[in-house]
Structure formats: structure tokens, C-alpha cells
Write a protein that binds this DNA or RNA. Structure first.
Length: 352
DNA sequence: AAACCGGGGTA
DNA sequence: TACCCAGGTTT
């Protein structure tokens, strides 16, 4: 990957002129960098902005994070996705309190031992917050390296990732590794765009980019195709009683772990209300909703139910409007049913 | 190595 | 639609 040797100086010059102003860059303490990097995993900068600011207002330091109530934490994370990130963040905060007295370790290897911190995140924190010269190889960086070096290796393979990481380790400027890593990602996010739509005329590497020279921009990076999603037809039960709606907590492991949801089942299941011990005084079909996860697609149909009594299965709760907004973290998968819920909370007489 | 884990922006 | 995003953990 000879081309990479020419990269650092023009890249850093470009970054100096084009770095975006981001909340976590104004005061890059280890805690700020850590939290922002976890939020940014598989998540765009624009989506993280609001969450980051709110998070720091509520949990300004490691000690606060380690002590936060789970429900408060999940409410702060509601809608951001990949909720295990939040749970690992709190778990790691406990590890930092116990092992290091509340201060993140200035060591790539030690950062790597924290919950939710993998090779990329350890490299990002080490370089940005502590000035340690290690690469931070994310999806942007893999794309940039693949194109500049003209590397046709499958970037989904660990071997390719390792090779590119080693190449970066050899050229990373020891004086400013954090700026270099952020510049690589910034270039990938704003110029060396995916889907064959890069802005090569604005790229500081255009003069020595192998993919550009060989007209292979639209062929790189090479990436193995992903598996198809499966579709699930589900019935979502919006169960009301005296101005409140029924919620249940999802299992602690798996999809949307620990979040709250409107009770739902595969559409093929029948007599489910009976199994739950809920006696309807009235019910009707409501609207439909669709939600696409990475590997599953939910096709949902709402069932509006007025319950005769307030008895619910163990672990379920009745939530009024304020509790729904302030207390219970409900994933965006159910967002399309909010209007139906609002209507149900306001007046159940419409259910007949 | 492959599967699992959200949600949204963009072409 | 399909792709991809400042990836990590589990199997």
C-alpha cells in the first residue's frame, strides 16, 4: 500500500480546513470521547447530536454513569438503537470505577478490556483522548484505504481489516494520531462517499489514489453481500383501561432487550388475550405499521382492546400519557402506533 | 466465520 | 429498493 505513505500531510491539511464542529470535539476528555464513540457505532453523526448533549447533561461523569438507574439510562438511549451499547456503557463505567478509580486508562490494551469497547473504539479513545499512536479502523477508514491503495480485499473479512490496520499503524503521525484518525473518518463521511458517489475533486488524496487512477472507484471497496431479512407478521395489542395503556418489558437478552413494548405476538397466534387473562369489553382492528431491522422486518397490525378490569400478567404495567413519555423506554419500532395510543388514552368510547 | 443487534439517511 | 453508517458480542 505504497500510496498511503503520501497521505498524512495532505490529509491533515485538509482536515484542518474542513473538520466539522461537533459537540464532543470542543472538550475531548476521555469520558466525552468514550461516550461519543459508543454512540457513533453504526450511527451517523447527525443522529447522535441530540442524544449526546442530553446524555452529558444528565450523566456528566463516569461516577454518574456507573450509578444511573437502568430505566433512566434506557430512556436517554430510546430511539438510538443497539441498546446493548447503553448497558455495556454502564457496565464499563463500573469497571472504570473499580479498577481505575473513575479515570479511563491511557492504554489501548486496557481500554480493550472494557465492556462494549472493541478494536475500533479502543483505538479512537487512545488516539483522540490520550494521543497514543494507534489506528481507529471503522467502515469509513476501510473504504478510504481500499480506494487509495486499490486494495481488492473483502473489507468484511477480519484478515482484510487487520492488513489495513497494520498499514495505517506504519504511517500514523505520532505527533497527532487523534487528528489523523478523525481526518480519515471525516474524509470517508464527507468526501470518499459509498455507493460509487465520491467527491474526488475535493479529495486531498486524489493525486495518488489508486482507485481513481485506475477508474475503479465504483468497484471499491469489495464487500461480501449480506443475508436477506426475514419477515414477521405480528399483531400489536393496544390494551386500554381508564385512560391507561398496557406495557410489558421485553426479555433481558435478544432483540430490543429490556425495553418496554405494547404486547404483541406472531399474527398466527390466536386466543392470546385469553391466555393473558384479559377480558375485553370491546375490541376492533386498528392501523398497520412496518419496521425494518437489520435482519428482521416486522409487519404489524394493531388490535385496539378495551379491558374489563385492571388485572395484568406479572411484570406488565398500566402507563398513562406522562409515564409513557417520561418513564418507559419504548423502541421506535412501535412509533407508528403512537397516534392510536393517544386516541385510546383520550377516550375509549371510540373502540365500539 | 457467521449471526445477532436499531434506526435512519441517501442514491 | 438497497446500501451503509465513528462496531461489538455471542455462537
Amino acid at each position: 500500500m505504497r500510496e498511503l505513505e503520501q497521505l498524512p500531510i495532505p490529509l491533515l491539511a485538509w482536515y484542518h480546513e474542513n473538520a466539522r464542529v461537533l459537540p464532543w470535539r470542543s472538550d475531548p476528555t476521555p469520558y466525552h470521547v468514550w461516550v461519543s464513540e459508543i454512540m457513533l457505532q453504526q450511527t451517523r453523526v447527525a443522529a447522535v447530536m441530540g442524544y449526546y448533549s442530553r446524555f452529558m447533561e444528565t450523566l456528566p461523569d463516569v461516577a454518574a454513569l456507573a450509578a444511573v438507574e437502568d430505566d433512566v439510562l434506557m430512556k436517554l438511549w430510546q430511539g438510538l438503537g443497539y441498546y446493548s451499547r447503553a448497558r455495556n456503557l454502564k457496565k464499563a463505567a463500573g469497571q472504570v470505577m473499580e479498577r481505575y478509580g473513575g479515570a479511563l486508562p491511557a492504554s489501548y490494551e486496557e481500554l480493550l478490556t472494557l465492556a462494549g469497547v472493541g478494536e475500533y473504539t479502543a483505538g479512537a479513545i487512545a488516539s483522540i483522548a490520550f494521543g497514543i499512536p494507534v489506528p481507529a479502523v471503522d467502515g469509513n477508514v476501510l473504504r478510504v484505504v481500499a480506494r487509495i491503495a486499490g486494495d481488492e480485499g473483502d473489507i468484511t473479512l477480519p484478515a482484510t481489516k487487520k492488513r489495513m490496520g497494520q498499514a495505517l499503524q506504519e504511517i500514523i503521525p505520532t505527533a497527532m494520531p487523534g487528528a489523523f484518525n478523525q481526518a480519515m473518518m471525516e474524509l470517508g463521511a464527507t468526501v470518499c462517499l459509498p455507493n460509487g458517489a465520491p467527491l474526488c475533486d475535493k479529495c486531498p488524496a486524489a493525486g495518488f489514489c489508486a482507485a481513481l487512477a485506475q477508474d475503479k472507484i465504483d468497484l471499491l471497496p469489495v464487500k461480501a453481500p449480506k443475508k436477506a431479512r426475514r419477515v414477521e407478521e405480528r399483531t400489536v395489542y393496544l390494551i386500554f383501561h381508564e385512560g391507561r395503556v398496557a406495557l410489558r418489558r421485553r426479555p433481558e437478552k435478544g432483540l430490543l432487550a429490556g425495553l418496554w413494548e405494547y404486547p404483541n405476538e406472531l399474527a398466527e397466534k390466536t386466543d392470546i388475550l385469553e391466555q393473558w387473562g384479559i377480558i375485553p369489553t370491546s375490541q376492533r382492528w386498528g392501523g398497520t405499521g412496518k419496521h425494518i431491522f437489520t435482519h428482521i422486518e416486522w409487519h404489524m397490525t394493531a388490535r385496539m382492546v378495551q379491558a374489563a378490569g385492571d388485572t395484568l400478567p406479572p411484570g406488565w404495567v398500566w402507563a398513562d400519557g406522562p409515564a409513557l413519555r417520561q418513564t418507559y423506554a419504548v423502541p421506535n419500532a412501535f412509533q407508528s402506533f403512537v397516534p392510536l395510543v393517544e386516541a385510546g388514552l383520550a377516550g375509549a368510547e371510540t373502540l365500539t
